[in-house]
Design a protein around this nucleic acid. Structure first.
Lengths: 308, 308
DNA sequence: GGTCGTCATAAGCGAACGGTTAAGAGGTGT
DNA sequence: ACACCTCTTAACCGTTCGCTTATGACGACC
């Protein structure tokens, strides 16, 4: 049993296919097959059987899978922690959904790093469904966005109430007959607006933009309607460049959560951020209009990455 | 970073010496040195430095140590769990201190396996200070005995009140001038009687016997005094073959705890035993005189092992 | 009954793992 | 200064790991 064998097997379980795992790892198919075969013979369990076009895991395979993820996650964390003691820096990896990442994460993490200057923060933007996954796989230390569904071993605290209002360039727009402009993630299924949308009689056509800001620009130009964050379009509504459409159910109230691994598995820095997000200073930073806080951009300690 | 490298390093940390770890593993000293050197170069941290006659660990080394134990423990557990699904048996490894193991564990586990017949129980007897260690290293699933000191990530529930009375063959015995006869572990430091003994003005000489039963036999023969379990010597006291000595502080009241790993890391079988021990049936089994419960000894599912 | 997609096996190869013996380096203790 | 204990390095070797390409086996699908 090797760490790399466990890592390979965990990926096979995650993707449900040797072929896909091989592609993901950038190696040939027999390489993956051999790694799993080694585990098979060592553990005396087939781990999975061929079923139909793909594979079906045995009970032993499923049990091994959860431990394999845990083991490789711990090994990676050990590597990181030792590296942190060497460089004398703390690192914090934050995952956020696209909407939160675009409108609030920057200001929030900026304020946080002013509080803890020795902490290097990385931000990865991914979809809401993957937030819990990223935590479990220890790809991220903190997840910011809708409350993850699999909350048994996660510690989620709400920290910001937001509302999405339906806006258009003119009050004569007909919401259910026009395209809905959205950010890159469409409408997150796990979020309140996603659940609200699922309850509508008709499912509108969505048009995705690389950012919600661009979607707002297009809405202003009359290209469609948009379920925009209230505090982001407040200025537009005041100026009249955008108007609210009074669809029942709007404004949709939602909550953003800061989630960390439960059961004492969260790092100190992760808990520090989770506590920080509920402070008044953090709320003020997130709701402030862009540019209001002249952050000293000497050496931006927040790195941002976008995952496909 | 290899599982065997981590296992080796964890042992080095535990023993505080490469030489000792090599002896324990039955390999040469350079083998251990090379394993650790591989970790060193890969992680970019010396992990430890030579200090005086031995070694002193760096902060990175200490951090790696705790994760290394966790990782190899998880790997072993994964192996076991897969093996259990193959053989369709659940196994439960119980650790107990010598006193509890001798007088109560047999009847308790006998009753438990009658309740869960598909569960194979192994009992290892070790000293109280190692109980928490055995849990953390996942050598045992449940620990029965005094409450472990390092209780931060352990879940300990008290389940049996016991008392130790000072007995001798004659009321003229002078406790502080005679040898104290004990079981194999002496007097556990972590237990109530250990703490009580530490508070005495003079520390009596202890004579250890392979079992407490043999110590009782010797006490009956007048070889010394003994701090015996109340319910074990009840018959002797009634018959007059042993008498109580009224030393202040006696009888010493103590509690036995059933401890499992906290934070959701305990197995289902471990929690089942932890719950079972608090039931009236379990208490009755433990306090019943030996031979009172005619356990059907068809195929004794409880294995007992003694660790030096 | 082909054909395709997917996993398994075979043969081979370089690199790393894990072990040995032998000798060196660095400290303690007398 | 000396012996002594402990960790480290060097040189060497067999096994395993992890990867490749090529080919086979098995089931689904048309």
């Amino acid at each position: 049993m090797t760490l790399s064998q466990l890592r390979t097997f965990a990926l096979v379980v995650r993707l449900g296919s040797l072929r896909a795992a091989a592609a993901e790892l950038g190696v040939s198919e027999p390489a993956v097959s051999a790694a799993v075969a080694a585990l098979r013979s060592e553990l005396g369990d087939p781990l999975f059987v061929r079923a139909g076009g793909g594979i079906a895991f045995t009970p032993g395979g499923r049990r091994l899978a959860v431990h394999a993820e845990e083991i490789v996650g711990l090994a990676d964390q050990a590597r990181r922690e030792v590296a942190e003691t060497v460089t004398a820096t703390r690192s914090l990896r934050v995952a956020a959904t696209a909407d939160f990442g675009e409108h609030a994460a920057g200001a929030l993490l900026d304020a946080f790093t002013r509080r803890l200057p020795d902490c290097e923060v990385d931000l990865v933007v991914l979809e809401g469904a993957d937030l819990a996954d990223a935590l479990a796989r220890r790809v991220a230390d903190v997840a910011l966005g809708p409350r993850p569904a699999a909350g048994d071993s996660l510690d989620a605290v709400p920290f910001l109430r937001y509302q999405r209002v339906l806006v258009a360039d003119s009050p004569r727009a007909e919401p259910l007959r026009q395209v809905w402009l959205t950010g890159p993630a469409g409408l997150e299924e796990l979020s309140e607006e996603g659940r609200w949308l699922a309850g509508l009689p008709t499912w509108p056509d969505l048009v995705r933009f690389p950012t919600e800001t661009e979607a707002i620009d297009a809405t202003r130009a009359g290209d469609g309607v948009m379920l925009a964050l209230g505090h982001v379009v407040r200025a537009d509504l005041r100026l009249g460049t955008l108007v609210r459409l009074p669809l029942p159910g709007t404004p949709v109230q939602g909550l953003w959560y800061a989630t960390v691994l439960g059961r004492g598995r969260a790092s100190a820095a992760a808990r520090a951020l989770q506590e920080f997000v509920t402070t008044p200073g953090a709320t003020a930073a997130m709701l402030a209009p862009p540019g209001a806080t002249p952050s000293t951009p000497r050496r931006p300690p927040v790195h941002v990455a976008l995952w496909s």
